[in-house]
Design a protein around this nucleic acid. Structure first.
Lengths: 157, 157
DNA sequence: ATCGATGCAAAGCGTTTGCAGGGGT
DNA sequence: ACCCCTGCAAACGCTTTGCATCGAT
């Protein structure tokens, strides 16, 4: 399980390349932030990344973590997830996945699923045309499956 | 178009019932916030709702708008949308729709689309079985199409 | 009379920015 | 030598909270 996540992380050499192609330098801080992100089993906040990376780089500042996360997202090796609560969460997974949102607990889980460029067309062939007429070009999608685990008791507020 | 949205809003009587069932009072401010939300063509931020509702209730405060939105969400008649940028957006539509997220402006738009109970099966027949084996019952989905309007200038940093 | 709701102002919190010093290229 | 990056602190914007007052039941 953990192996699978670590193995999905970019090796340092490729990370460096991704950063530099996008016009950023590859620094020890950014590498550490990326590695923490790639090894995380959940989607950490900036603060959580900060706390985790301090083990490797004690003098790192929270501002640097924010800037590193920005660089990683801009380089396409990490994603900033949309959230309802105040703080953003980050994701370094490279494989495409859906989210599974539990109505009972509110938890969000990853569901590994290959990215399907034709998904929209598959769902509704007329939809893409309709969007293109509006001038909207679809570059991706996010699918969230909502439901609940049967049997488990509710734990909502 | 606007008619269709207004007609999807709850009438005041039902709104009152929804609020009071959840333990909130139905006040003029909350009614006005709900109506502004239900008639909006996009998903306004709290600030936008505030500006809009001031026309009807000039002395309303931003704090009251936030509290009203909280009451509406807790009563199940509105939803707080997840966002990447700083401010939250709200939605009072009851009919099913996808979201269109613009990568350039961050705006979220509705895309009216009938709810398709078989959408997941249509995408991947094996997926439902896989989920049921996990004990997860899918009761709904949220689909967000990400992209951008062609031609318009970028406004990202 | 009670208890929640309002409006105002101030505080809170996540995030961003200005700036001086430091390091890679 | 240049320019980007770092770390610190201050600023910023969205949201929440404390509190006195108001209003409905």
């Amino acid at each position: 399980m953990i192996e699978a996540m670590i193995s999905s992380a970019l090796p340092p050499k490729e990370l460096r390349e991704a950063l530099e192609t996008a016009g950023w330098r590859c620094t020890p801080q950014r590498l550490a932030v990326y590695e923490h992100l790639a090894e995380a089993e959940h989607h950490p906040t900036a603060e959580e990344v900060y706390q985790g990376v301090k083990a490797a780089i004690p003098r790192i500042s929270l501002a640097t973590v924010y800037k590193a996360l920005e660089a990683l997202v801009a380089s396409g090796v990490a994603a900033k997830l949309t959230t309802t609560d105040g703080s953003a969460r980050y994701d370094a997974r490279r494989d495409h996945h859906y989210h599974l949102r539990c109505l009972r607990s509110g938890a969000v889980e990853d569901l590994p699923t290959p990215y399907d460029p034709d998904l929209v067309a598959k769902i509704d062939p007329a939809l893409l045309q309709q969007l293109e007429q509006k001038g909207f070009r679809v570059t991706g999608y996010r699918l969230e499956l909502v439901g609940f685990y049967e049997g488990a008791g509710a734990s909502r507020s």
